[in-house]
Every structure is written in C-alpha cells, then in structure tokens.
Amino acid sequence: MAAVLLSKSERAYIQSSLKATPPLRADGRGLLDFRTVLLETGVAPLANGSARLNIGKMAREGGGGTEIVAAAKLEVEDVESGDGVDGGRVACSVTCSPAAYPHLSSNALDELQHDLSVILQQTIGHPSLHPRNLTIIPRKKSWLLNLDAVVLADAGNVVDALFMAARAALWDAKVPRTRAVQYRAPEALKSAKNDVPGAMDVDEGTSGFDTRDMARTAADFELPDYWDEGETLDGREKWPVCVTLNLLTPRHFLDATPAEEASVPQRLHLMFSFVPSAPPTLQAMRLLGPEELDLKDLKESIAFGEQYAKELFTALETKLREEDNRRNIKARDRFALMR
C-alpha cells in the first residue's frame, strides 16, 4: 500500500529470487513463513480493551517491525435522540503515524488512513459479526464500540497486523455490567387511586418526588460495583483474521516486507472468521494491484488462504487465551485471596 521507492532492477531482482527454485527472500524466510509476531493486551488503561502488536521486531536491536496499537472504547449513546442505533454500533478508525510513512505527504497519509479505516470498518462492523450485548436499555440506550488503531511503524504487511491487533483488542474488550433503573409507584398508593375514581379530587401538586404517573419502564441505568470490568463481548470468537497473499503467479507468499510488497503485481487480502463447530466463513476479500486474476486461480488462492488463516487463527487464539489467563484469571484469584 505504501509506495516505497524501488528501482526497476531492484524489483526484477526481488521477483526473480522469489521465482527461483528454491525461492529466496532477503531475510532467509520461506515463502509461507511469518516474521516473529509479538502481542500484548491491556496496554491502554483508559480503554475497555487494547492490544499492542509487532510483526518482525529485531531481537538484538530491540526495534523495527510493523507496530500497531489498537484500543476498543465504549461510549453510551442515546437511541431516542437519534445518535445511536438500537442494539449498539461499531465504529472503526485507523490513524497512521507520519513516522511510519516518512515519504508520504500529509494528504497521501490521510488517504491511506481512510483506505485502512474503510477496510476495517466494512469487515469488523459487518452485521454478521455484531456483538449482541451492546444494548443497555432496549430502544433507549446502547453502547457505541469505538475501535481505534494507530500504525506506529510500517515494515510491511500492515493489513494482517491491523486485523490481528483489532481482534486482540476486541477480544480483550469488556462491556461494563449495567443494571436498569426504573421508577415504580408503591402498589398501595396505586390501587387506592384506582379503586375510588374521582371520589376526592386532591390537588397533588407537582412535586419532583411524585413519580406515580411516570411510565413503568426502565428509564436509566447504573453501574454496579464489581471486581472485574465487565463481561467480554458476545461472540468474540468470531472476530476475523486476515491473511494477505502476495501473488506472483504461479507462486504466492505471505508476510511481505515493504520492498517485496512494492515488487509484486497483485495482493489478495482474505478475512476469515472461524467459529467453533461451524465451517469457516470468508468475511471480506480485497484484490489489489494492476493485473487481473483468473477465476480458477482466485478459487485456489482462497483455498490456500483459508488454510493459512486457520494456522494464524490458532496461533493467535492460543496467545490470546494465554494473555487472558495472565491478566484476568490470575487477577481474579488474587482478588479471591484478598477477600
């Protein structure tokens, strides 16, 4: 996506080494190898869920690699006033640091940000993935789930990294427990009023404490005090992962560096969602690049993509459960001990 300046001969060199048998890559990886992926959840204390992800950090230097911070933050929205949607909504945005793209002008950077936001919004905000527990009070109040991702450094393969970070942040997100509050008139008062209609016309005044005529539905909500920050988002297993197939017919490879990205004619982003006990679903697909792709090749690529995405998903799932254990279950045990 980032237009790295690459000369024709450099491009030809990279292409021919990728096509050679055995294929060669500058960092010695195989075609289907990912760089080291590092993930940490709970990095933003003020967000409801957050994650920091790095692909390809160099072990010795302690730097480098694609780095993304994603955070999910919940906000209360009023449905009646027209701000919110009944059942809640999901809004995604991506910010790219100018430091990640030092060669881009600020306008080009805005365009890139917009492109990435649209991909994320259309995939994550799709109705088929919508979590059901974003309602606070039906038809009155709902949560707005803001997912913000910041690209701090780009060393290639941003879209895959973005989706992994988004999945981790959403996995980590906790919806605060709410308890609906309603106004209710004491039963005795109500029945007395109904039994003798018009017997005595008492001027009731307009006291603020007189709530007898108010509608007996939930009017507002409160946040009960509890040890944890709430329950996890409903259907958090469904959040998709993305694999990018860099197509250099007849070959494809994964996790491209910026130079490799600039030298392949086509890229295919595939977003898969893996629900336990159901076949995987292809949530979104993007084909980028100036060339065309045969339908047969496309089908083949999707089949390969599914396989890679499954592997990526399994690895990410393991790490997320480990993080969950580290941050939540141990915290709960410690809380139990304190009591």
């Binding site: 967000a47 955070a71 945005s93 913000d148």
Partner: peptide
C-alpha cells in the same frame, strides 16, 4: 519535502503531534 519552507542559513524544526483517540478518559478524536 517542500523546498519553499527551507531557510538558507539554518535547519527548520517541523513538529507534528498526534494524540491517540483512546489516550484520555472520554474518547475524542
């Protein structure tokens, strides 16, 4: 990037700042 913004006798400091939307208590972009 823009030659017109340079000075002939010294370097120009260009400071750009971005605040993450999740950095504060209430989210604000």
């Amino acid at each position: 990037k823009m030659r017109s913004q340079t000075l002939h006798d010294r370097a120009v400091l260009n400071v750009e700042m971005s605040v993450a939307p999740f950095s504060t208590g209430d989210r604000r972009k």
